[in-house]
Amino acid sequence: MIYQLNANVRNFGETISELSGVDISTCYQCGKCTAGCPVVMEMSHTPNQIMRLIQLGLKDEVLSSPTPWLCASCETCTTRCPKEVDIAKIMDTLRILALKEGYKRKEPNVVAFNKIFLDSIKNNGRLQETKLAMAFNFKTLQFFKDMMLGQKLFMKGKISFSGDAISGVDAVKAIFERSKGFLDKGER
């Protein structure tokens, strides 16, 4: 693979730095983030490669990478980074930007989960776990996922189909409407 680097090479990195508040140029590629990442074996790009690709200004490569979606937000990378780079925050920024710019979802289930989760809060104020799991399975066409588990949970009285809504639902809805960066226009 040959990447063509032009004089604007730093533009994308600067955008990410601005959006995240984390200076991309600080990363010196030691790899400690990759060394401690619990999900790295599922990733096509390791965390330090994502940082490098941002430094190289390769926007498409970064925003269509599944890596940010696989990030479990455990913050091990951020905690141990010797340059104090908040890598987990960068991953958040990349997810938000990828949604906003309509990049193809390499981990559609993660995107779907986040959306259903937030919809549930928006409509009820609180998360309804049972409804969340059902809606997620329906949306991702995994009708029998965790069915056995669901049955057992039902027996233990942990499953409830009735709502656990709050009286301030409207206040929560308003929060959603007023929050910036919540822009999922779908894949382009």
Partner: peptide
């Protein structure tokens, strides 16, 4: 080529979790 993120004890061995950034993997 990479830093180590964690060392932990397993029996009488030390498990060293590091990265090889040249091979782009965890070691």
């Amino acid at each position: 080529r990479g830093r180590v993120s964690k060392i932990y004890q397993r029996g009488d061995k030390l498990i060293v979790k590091g990265a090889d950034t040249l091979a782009a993997c965890q070691v």
